[in-house]
Amino acid sequence: MDFCLVVFASATTVNRVKSVLLKKFQINSEIVQTPKAIPAKGCSYSLKIKTEYADVVWNLIKENGLSSKGIFRESNFEKIK
């Protein structure tokens, strides 16, 4: 299974996106710490989701004006959004 990490600075935003993904799109996700290899400005959280949902979550972020540091492939930390 191919996963990606949606990176957020704030614990509130990561929880918000997790909650909306589940309630509105029935998409499950998991909150994890952002690996150090991904450039974030200090401590941060990521939402681990199946890569097939990357567009859904990216649109959600944009539509709601949320702040995210991007979406990265979990396997090699390549930036995909």
Partner: peptide, 13 residues
């Protein structure tokens, strides 16, 4: 705040 830890200024979010 647990966020933006590298920055000395308070986050805006």
């Amino acid at each position: 705040t647990g966020s933006y830890s590298k920055e000395l200024s308070q986050p805006f979010e």
